[in-house]
Design a protein around this nucleic acid. Structure first.
Length: 407
DNA sequence: ATAATACCCAAT
DNA sequence: TTGGGTATTA
């Protein structure tokens, strides 16, 4: 049944799992509210009722979402002035359409995730046997570039928990409240009226005192990056947000070059932005975590000297990891990477995944020759891929792309 | 043009 | 002590 005040959108859980997608480190702004198990109807049976409500503050409204196995339920909460204007059916209808349009765009619902999972399963045995059926519905969000850039500048050398807290601070400290709304708890508990703030604009984060304020808020050295990036964008562009949005039209390499000009934006952060808000679906951001996954499950060679634990990330290794994963997954490699990344977050490794060490991963529909077990040493990072891989199937590499002298 | 290091904070 | 990195300096 449809929750009161919500509109239902037919959508199988395999196409989108809010629980996985909204909390896996793509966006850091969704707040999850547990819903009390309605009645004793919790009497077994396939999970029917939604277990959580998720909320996200947009410019002029708060989006509320719930879902069960077959539907996505949504509704928007507006500030008083807009709500009043909505008494006019015309306005109300327009606002509702905007919300639906936003949902379709944000979740990229025109992309059939089932087909992608099928393709990845055919190409990758690890995905096929250990991920596909256990981690369904994990898709790439299409986020606002500005928010994405700032959020990921905050992500450097950091973990999801703290990043979430920092982004939250950004909103409550530099952006005025949009509106308030009680927590879901069906029995309208006036207990804790939540206050929602949109993500601050470039101008709001470009003010001089922002950096010091961020320091106090615990941003550490990222404080200056955020303020300077905002400042830089405001100085160079009449409309910073429109400029960033415009980067979607550029090639991956050109857009990356632009992003790398920003303070606190290096190869990894730039790739996150390209993948999550610039439509560059093949880009695979490589952090140490992804590096580990590639080493462990995709036959990527460790460093020649094979130092026990730590392997410093170099541009060369970054490129090698990215290329390897693109070869494995194809043109939606970035999306696939997100599934593996999320699965790994939920520690699928502890479920006894077979590792290449002793279990040669055999690609069945292979653009890639079987990577042999990491046997002997070698000064290369690839598992024998003698086939001319000269073309560097796009993405992945931030290095050697363009000299971008930045006059 | 490839390597070390510092940086701010939190978790182990 | 070690990162879900980047910028700076050697």
């Amino acid at each position: 049944m449809v929750p009161k005040g919500f509109t239902a959108l037919p959508l199988p859980i395999a196409q989108l799992s809010l629980a996985a997608v909204l909390k896996c480190g793509q966006s850091f702004r969704w707040v999850a509210y547990p819903l009390v198990a309605s009645e004793e109807i919790k009497a077994e049976q396939p999970t029917e009722a939604p277990t959580h409500e998720y909320r996200f503050a947009l410019k002029d409204r708060v989006i509320c979402l719930r879902q069960d196995s077959n539907s996505l339920f949504y509704r928007a909460v507006f500030p008083k002035d807009v709500a009043d204007a909505c008494k006019d059916p015309k306005v109300a209808k327009k606002k509702e359409e905007e919300t639906l349009d936003w949902l379709n765009d944000y979740f990229q619902l025109d992309v059939d995730l089932i087909s992608l999972y099928t393709e990845w399963a055919e190409r990758d045995v690890v995905f096929r046997e250990n991920v596909k059926d256990r981690f369904a519905g994990i898709r790439m969000l299409r986020q606002d570039p500005w928010e994405n850039v700032i959020s990921f500048i905050c992500s450097s050398n950091n973990h999801i928990g703290r990043i979430t807290k920092m982004v939250q601070s950004l909103c409550t400290s530099f952006s005025p409240p949009i509106c308030t709304e009680p927590s879901p708890e069906d029995g309208e508990d006036p207990s804790s009226p939540q206050v929602y703030h949109a993500f601050p604009s470039p101008k709001q984060l470009a003010a001089d005192d922002v950096a010091s304020k961020l320091r106090e808020l615990g941003f550490g050295y990222r404080a200056e990056y955020v303020q300077r990036t905002a400042e830089m964008l405001c100085e160079e562009h009449e409309d910073p947000q429109a400029y960033l949005l415009g980067l979607r039209k550029l090639s991956t390499e050109d857009a990356r070059a632009e992003l790398l000009k920003l303070c606190g934006v290096g190869p990894k952060v730039a790739d996150c932005v390209l993948l999550m808000s610039m439509d560059k679906k093949m880009v695979v951001p490589v952090d140490t975590h992804v590096h580990q996954i590639a080493l462990k499950y995709y036959g990527l060679r460790g460093t020649p000297s094979g130092k026990g634990g730590k392997v410093p990330m170099t541009p060369k290794i970054y490129e090698a990891v990215g290329s390897k994963l693109v070869e494995t997954w194809g043109d939606y490699a970035g999306w696939a990477h997100s599934v593996l990344f999320t699965a790994d977050l939920r520690s699928f490794a502890s479920y006894g995944l077979p590792t290449p060490t002793g279990t040669p991963v055999k690609q069945s529909l292979p653009p890639t020759p079987v990577p042999p077990t990491p046997s002997e040493s070698d000064s290369d990072y690839f598992g024998t891929s003698p086939t001319k891989k000269r073309k560097t199937r796009a993405s992945g590499s931030p290095s050697k792309l363009k000299r971008v002298k930045t006059e």
